[in-house]
Design a protein around this nucleic acid. Structure first.
Lengths: 123, 123
DNA sequence: CCGTATCCTTCTAGATACTG
DNA sequence: CAGTATCTAGAAGGATACGG
């Protein structure tokens, strides 16, 4: 495994850590990870109601709130079709899709952690 | 880039998203990412005071709180040297170090995002 | 040096009801 | 269908003081 550190100079490391942590704060929020994973897992853009259906337990308020923040941060794209009844689709931006490798790695890690918790052989 | 989805069956995708999101909740908390990045960036275990010094803005209370949770979740290891004055070192467990690829990818993504924000050529 | 204990503020999330 | 508007409870975070 490669050295994760872009630089060994302590002051640079510090700046690096701070930047990373700051940027990653856009992923904070109880439902953002699930939303992104659902959009990653889907071939096509998802309608608001479809997201709501796929994310059990979320309320409309929370869903719209987190989607708005993700949109503001340039991660998801909202497309409104001016129809009656209204139709809105959400998809990942290029920046959002660039999260793919990170999420792949995190999902693998989550499997590792789950295996550790259960202490059993899922494989 | 590979398909991030472990399975195309919708029901499996749902379970996958839920599991991942649940597990990743152990990374929630204002200071956990910074703590992990600092420990990843360091060759050696870090003393409590050293972490405090490297994470500007954190209070003792928050630092110890987040460290305790990370320890409870099996990500960091606390080692107490029974001396006077006391010495405590924190390091990453095997599970913690397994976060390396994820964090590498996330840090790269954060660079991408920052470049996007600045609209300039860092490279 | 490495924490605990208290108090206080802010932020988050959820329930519920309503609208173009 | 896809939201908005209020209200409220609780969690998270922070300031400060103290202790082994």
């Amino acid at each position: 495994m490669d050295d994760p550190r872009p630089c060994r100079d302590p002051k640079e490391q510090h700046a690096w850590a701070a930047t990373a942590a700051g940027t990653l704060r856009v992923l904070e929020g109880k439902w953002k990870i699930v939303i992104i994973v659902q959009l990653l897992a889907s071939d096509e853009p998802l309608r608001f109601s479809e997201l709501e259906r796929r994310i059990p337990g979320v309320t409309q308020k929370m869903l719209i709130q987190q989607l708005k923040e993700l949109e503001k941060d340039g991660i998801v794209i909202r497309t409104l079709y001016p129809q009656v009844p209204p139709k809105v689709e959400y998809s990942l931006s290029e920046l959002g899709r660039a999260l793919t490798p990170s999420f792949q790695a995190l999902v693998e890690w989550s499997y590792l952690k789950e295996r550790r918790l259960e202490g059993c052989s899922v494989a």
